[in-house]
Design a protein around this nucleic acid. Structure first.
Length: 591
RNA sequence: GCCGGCGUAGCUCAGGGGUAGAGCAGCUGAUUCGUAAUCAGCUGGUCGGUGGUUCGAAUCCACUCGCCGGCUCCA
């Protein structure tokens, strides 16, 4: 591709749309053009910031009334004018004081704030026609280089992202080198809508959320529940194999327990109000950890017991602000695939590697092969000693390195009680979702005086790891629905096979085949209604059932079945044992 | 929680001060049919809730609940 931008930033680099830097420059320039258009149409609008983002750009404005979709149409029209004029972007440097005076004069208080915060002698501005904006740049050479753009949505956003600040209006948009690429991006947005787990959840009858039940509370319908059960069975089986002990704990506990754990101090805003039972306050659990600690502490432990791994599909309840609830991905009651590992310091390295192996194994099984991994280090507020943090962080780091995994440091993003590794999975559309987390905890062992008797006969404090592989079953399910677009692999499909009769004469034969499959442990149903085969196939396809068996006169006479695979592939006429063989293999392989 | 938008039949949506509409789904009947929709008839809604304005409210206003797009936060 020809570089569209060859201004020298560094004499070696040709910036094109193929790399992120190039795309960002292109879209950032588009955001300037949008800001210019907005200022022309609505001169009183105050400019905040307007960066490029993943798939486009935005610009924030402070304006006395909300922008409307009709405004976007006008702004787009004005942008087209600016682009047609093909004016150059000209970089200028101003002394900070000079720049502050200029933007004060222009009535741009946010720009003044930005310059003041930069606290530099000089700042750069970009001039395009009579529009001047504070900007580090670089930009494309001229406005005419923008070949395709679209404004997508309007949303509120706080100045500097702080909810105590003024709410600004953010206009989102995107731009591309040509119309075709933009069309294909817009088609991708449509595809994302088509795969939306809330939509598929209803269409495939997997789950629902009901106003009368309450916001953020999930009702798992039979088909969703079947998928969940399959996931849970797999999860439990693998946890046994990987050396975990399964535990169950209650949904409420005395408020005192949460005071002792520290949750009342640092997690209160996510916890529900206590309920009084026999004059004692009880609290719905937001986390499972204190219970697992109580189990650990129910007896004394020797170093020989370690590492000790307690795992639970533990349902927790957390208050989430109404505006953040989102289908299955953000709810108020959810089940974590939680585990707490108690180990000695000497065991920490191996144990972390083991957890990483286990995590990757689980994620791969669900079809996630690409990850974004983050190592979150000590935040400003923390408990424990600096040495402890350093050792734990080093342990996490060395485990990642030994596994040869690429990761980024997320400085200061650890939890107050310890550093952590977060693993985001990339789904079929390349979107990253946070699922797995592996956290070291210095807080709880100390607060609860968790101990084991060492080889030396003395008491030691074990290191405690929290970890969740899928994160929460609700969120993971939501991600899975979108990842597979509702077409679950055979082992997860709630209905694996449907038997279809062509006419009433094959009804008994169809029921017999269904029964034989059912006895082999296959999840199967049948459609022997007096309907045309085309309709039955259509409905089975819409329900995304992996295999449809078509039984007519021919199959009945030959004692065979005719197999149609999801997607339309016709496997043809085979015998039932052959088919069962095939199913068993596919289920076993979890493909 | 905040900004904006939206709540009409199970679903998708039209209607916008004067008797609530369509398609799909559902039900009933006919059709017995070979790889994504057979035909006909019928049922179904205190228009999210509460209060107000009005002779009259699905429609206008206020509050409230929920949802959607974001912000912030997060599994």
């Amino acid at each position: 591709m020809m570089p569209f931008f060859m201004q020298v930033i560094n004499s070696e680099i040709h910036i094109t749309f193929d790399n992120k830097e190039g795309r960002d420059i292109y879209r950032h320039s588009t955001s300037h053009i949008m800001a210019h258009a907005v200022k022309e149409l609505y001169p009183e609008a105050k400019l905040a910031i307007g960066p490029a983002i993943e798939d486009g750009f935005y610009y924030d404005f402070d304006y006395h009334r909300p922008f409307t979709p009709e405004d976007l149409v006008k702004i787009e029209e004005k942008m087209r004018e600016i682009i047609r004029a093909d004016r150059p972007f000209v970089r200028k440097e101003l002394g900070s004081k000079e720049a502050i005076d200029y933007f004060k004069d222009k009535g741009e208080p946010y720009k003044v704030l930005l310059i003041e915060e930069l606290n530099q002698e000089k700042v750069s501005v970009y001039e395009e026609g009579d529009f001047i904006d504070l900007c580090l740049g670089p930009h494309i050479p001229s406005t005419g280089k923008v070949k395709a753009f679209k404004l997508l949505s309007i949303a509120g956003a706080y100045w500097r992202g702080n909810e105590k600040n003024t709410m600004l209006q953010r206009i989102y948009g995107t731009s591309f080198l040509n119309e075709e690429d933009m069309e294909s991006y817009l088609r991708k947005i449509e595809e994302i809508k088509r795969r939306d787990h809330r939509r598929l959840g209803r269409e495939l009858d997997l789950f629902s959320i009901n106003e009368e039940t309450g916001a953020g509370l999930i009702l798992w319908h039979p088909k969703g529940a079947m998928i969940r059960k399959t996931i849970e069975d797999f999860w439990r089986e693998e946890h046994y194999k990987w050396g975990y002990n399964l535990v169950y704990t209650p949904h409420i506990a005395r408020l005192d327990l949460w005071a002792k754990s520290g949750h009342l101090d640092f997690y209160k805003e996510n916890m529900y109000s206590p309920m009084e039972i026999d004059n004692i306050d009880y609290e719905l659990k937001p986390m499972n950890c204190p219970f697992h600690i109580m189990i650990y502490k129910s007896q004394i432990h020797s170093y020989r017991d370690l590492p000790l791994r307690y795992a639970e599909l533990g349902t927790v309840y957390r208050y989430e602000r109404s505006g953040v609830l989102h289908g299955l991905l953000r709810v108020r009651g959810f089940t974590q695939d939680d585990a707490h590992i108690y180990c000695s310091e000497a065991q920490l390295n191996d144990e972390i590697q083991r957890v990483i192996d286990f995590t990757i194994f689980i994620l791969k099984t669900f079809g996630f092969h690409e990850y974004e991994i983050f190592l979150s280090t000590r935040p400003e507020e923390y408990v424990g000693t600096l040495e402890g943090w350093e050792r734990a962080t080093a342990a996490l780091k060395s485990a990642l390195e030994k596994k040869g995994l690429l990761y980024s440091d997320d400085i200061g993003a650890g939890v107050f009680y310890g550093p952590k590794i977060d693993i985001k999975v990339k789904d079929a559309l390349g979107r990253a979702w946070q699922c797995s987390t592996i956290q070291v905890d210095f807080n709880l062992p100390e607060r609860f005086k968790v101990a084991y008797r060492g080889e030396d006969g003395k008491e030691h404090q074990p290191i405690m790891l929290h970890r969740a592989l899928m994160g929460s079953l609700e969120r993971f399910f939501g991600i899975l629905i979108e990842h597979y677009a509702g077409a679950f692999p055979l082992w997860l499909s709630p209905v694996q096979v449907r038997v279809l009769s062509i006419t009433g004469s094959q009804a008994d034969y169809a029921e017999k085949i269904k029964e034989e499959l059912r006895l082999k442990g296959i999840r199967v149903d049948s459609d022997i209604r007096n309907e045309k085969i085309g309709l039955k196939i259509r409905e089975g396809s819409i329900e995304k059932i992996p295999y449809l068996l078509i039984l007519g006169e021919r199959e009945m006479k030959g004692n065979t079945i005719n197999v149609r695979k999801r997607g339309g592939e016709n496997i043809g006429e085979i015998t039932l044992p052959e088919f069962i063989e095939r199913l068993k293999k596919e289920i076993e392989e979890k493909l």
